[in-house]
Structures are given as C-alpha cells and as structure tokens.
Computed example of a mutant assay.
Amino acid sequence: MIVTFGGDGTILHASSLFAAAGRVPPILSFSMGTLGFLGEWKISEFKRAFREAYMSGSETERRTTISDQEKDTEDSRTGWSSVRGKSMGSTRGARVLVRQRLKVGLFDADGRRLNTNGGSPKDMHAMNEVLIHRGRDPHLAIVDVFVGGRFLTEAVADGMIVSTPTGSTAYSLSSGGSIIHPLVPSLLLTPICPRSLSFRPLILPWATPITLRLSQKNRGREVEVSIDGARREHGIGVGAELRVSGEDITQHDGAWQGGIPCIMRRSNAGPDSDDGWVGGLNGLLKFNYAFGEETV
C-alpha cells in the first residue's frame, strides 16, 4: 500500500512512480496540502483510516498466505495480515475507488515508437491528463485530431488535453472542460485556447482511441508533451503522434489489474454515498458560489 501526506500533487507523484506498471498498489491519501481535492482523509483520522485499510477482511494484496488454523497462533503473526478481519469482520471491507488511467504512446512521423520521458520506448499511464502544448513558441499549434481512427478536426490552439474523469477538475477544468464524476468511464478532449470559438470540449466513451498528430502546417516545428505535469525532456516534431486510450481495468482473484485503487472514507449517508466528491466541489472548488459571497 502507498500512503501519501500532502496535496493532489503528492498523489500524482506517487502514481507516476508506477506509470510504466500494469498494477498500482492501493493508495491511502491524507490531505495536508493547499487544495487536496483528491486527498480523502484528514490526518486526524489516521487511526480510523489504517484500521479500515488493514482490518477490513479484504483479501486483496495479501503479503503472506496464512491459513485459518495458523491465524490464532502467536508465532505465526507476521505483520498486518495476521489481524486482518478480526476487529471489523469480513463484511466491513474498506471502500475502494479504482480511478481510471490513460494509456499513452508516442510515435514519430515514420511510426516508430518514442520514449515518453526517458527509459525504453513503451506505453506510459497517466492519472490526470496528457497534453501537447506550443510551449515557448509564439505560434499556435496546429494539431490533426482523430477519434476512433477517423479524422475529427484540425485544431489550431495553444494545445490539446486528454484527461480522465479524475483529471477533469485539473488543467482541463481551467481550460473550460466539463467536470466528470470519477465513476463515469469516459475520456475528456479539451482544447487550450482554441482559435475557433466553435471548438468545444468533448466527452467520449472510455474505450475510444484518440490520436493527436502535429500537422505539417505548423510554423513552429516542435510542441511540448506533458504527462501528469511531467514535461518530456524533448519536444515532438511535425508528423509525430500522441496515441491515447483508456486503460483496461479487470479484476482477477480479488486483485485489480489496471487503474489506481484509492481507499475512500465511508460516509454516514451509506456506502454508496458520493458526499466526498460533492463536498469537494462545494468546499474546495467553491462550486456555484454567488459572485462576491464570503466563504468560510
């Protein structure tokens, strides 16, 4: 399990450590930053948080295999697995939200795979978003956008963002994108300051492949690429493609393959309540506050 103490950037950094991996350990996040929209727990709740994570009776990600007969013997207690399920029972499993990730591939004009940010060329994953941006170049980027293998439009803009529902409240939101609930399997395609006023953000099905190709018409010869805020050391040139799709999420023998399992707080309104997400909109993003209204 990963435990984070900080803001949303700390959670993004933790998830980025597994950007090339197919499985991410469960994340238990304590909000101690400036915004903390993704941080589920307050540090004052640390006892309750660890109790729900370790003693819920969940069978996912067991460190050791201990039979029922061995659990009660003093000599066999090796770490947290020996007390799993004793205090809260198997019906009190921790509430886990598996956040979706993007799968990102980068290719040059000849179709050869490029590395996304150092290391060997292979697909990387993003929790929030992937974007291409004109960077310090004074000219707008011209990007050919393909959705599901079909040409959609030639975008003339500062850049383009493809985000997850989790990332819909980040850079995409600042660029005019919609807010999407994390349980909605979808991709959000958002232009950054487009020249055309008719280009609006698009919400697409999760399985839809999106390709962003730097057009031959570009006056600037390169654009920058960033994955979850980490900028690629070198830009990409004319004809290069950014291929993005939603990562497949499956469950096998109680373990998640794909996605980011986040341990959530159980609210008093019931296990299916969305109070945490709604509260984040109201309390942190000041959603729908009247102009000039004082907030506490």
Rank of each mutant, 00 (worst) to 15 (best):
Y171G: 01
I192L: 06
P138F: 11
I180C: 02
A109R: 14
F107L: 02
L173D: 05
V184E: 04
L187R: 04
R231D: 13
E224V: 13
H181F: 10
T169A: 04
T190R: 00
H139A: 12
V162N: 04
G159Q: 03
A157V: 06
G159A: 03
S168M: 00
E222H: 15
R200K: 15
A170M: 10
A109C: 10
R99N: 02
D108I: 09
L102A: 03
V104E: 03
H234A: 09
S172K: 08
K122C: 12
G167T: 07
L187I: 00
A170G: 02
R150A: 08
D228I: 13
R150S: 12
T116Y: 04
R213K: 15
D108T: 08
R95Y: 00
S226R: 04
P165A: 07
H133N: 14
E224C: 14
S90T: 14
A155Y: 10
S168L: 02
A207E: 10
G159C: 02
L114N: 03
I203P: 00
V162W: 03
V223N: 02
H234F: 11
E154A: 03
P209N: 14
R221P: 01
R134W: 06
L106F: 06
H181A: 12
T190S: 14
I203N: 05
H133P: 06
R200Q: 14
G105Y: 09
N128K: 04
R95P: 00
S120G: 04
A109L: 05
L106A: 07
